[in-house]
Amino acid sequence: MLQLRAIVSGKVQHVGYRSRVVTMARTLDLKGCVRNLEDGRVYVVAEGDRADLERFCRAIRMEDPLIRVEDIQVHLSPPKGAWDGFYKISGERETDSRLDTATVFLKELIVIVKDGFKETNSRLGSVEGKLDSMEGRLDQIVAGQEKIACKIDAARKEIVSEVKGLRYDLQEGALSRFSKNKADWTGRHPEGEPKIHIKPS
């Protein structure tokens, strides 16, 4: 058994740090206390096995949206056995445990909201990437449609030309037949010459 005394500096007062220290100490079944110092640092006394104290020392070096531990000065000595549990000591002007609990919940809410924004931003980035990909595909589709429209227009012009040519050929053929039939009916060639019929004898 050993006693750990630590002076913790950084952003550690009025941010729920002591409540977190109490939770960690009780989880490891350590005995002692934690309290604020007037200079903005936090004083921690914990008694327990060396391995548990080492885990505790690593655990109280934390950083989250509100807490930022910058330095921990640690001193080990023989235990005094003065504590039967682990306690948070509050001064006359300090908040009570309800406000500390509210601070803990507020920090958890901040973390959840930040994570939610990160996830939302990540999803928006993914959607934006997909939209960019779709925009590229739409550009390809539009280019393909323009090519098809050009081919359709060229085919239409070719068909119109073919139909005009066919109509002209039909018209010429019809006029030729009409002239021939007229000659057969009148006995004259279209040029006005009489048609000669030779009958076999």
Rank of each mutant, 00 (worst) to 15 (best):
V8S: 06
G10H: 04
V12E: 04
Q13A: 05
R20D: 05
T27H: 01
D29Y: 04
R35D: 01
L37P: 00
G40A: 10
Y43C: 06
V45Q: 01
E47H: 02
E47R: 01
D49M: 03
R50S: 11
D52R: 04
F56K: 01
I60L: 14
R61G: 00
E63R: 13
V69R: 01
I72Y: 02
G85K: 06
Y87C: 02
Y87F: 12
E94F: 06
S97W: 02
T101F: 09
T103A: 11
V104E: 12
L106T: 06
K107N: 15
K107V: 15
K107R: 14
I110T: 10
I110G: 02
V113S: 11
D115S: 13
G116A: 07
R123A: 13
M134C: 13
G136R: 13
L138F: 12
L138K: 03
I148W: 02
A149C: 00
K157R: 12
K157N: 14
E158V: 06
V160P: 00
S161G: 14
L166K: 15
Y168K: 13
Y168W: 08
D169G: 06
E172Q: 15
N181R: 04
K182C: 10
D184F: 12
T186Q: 03
R188T: 14
H189L: 01
E191C: 15
G192Y: 05
H197G: 10
I198G: 06
S201T: 11
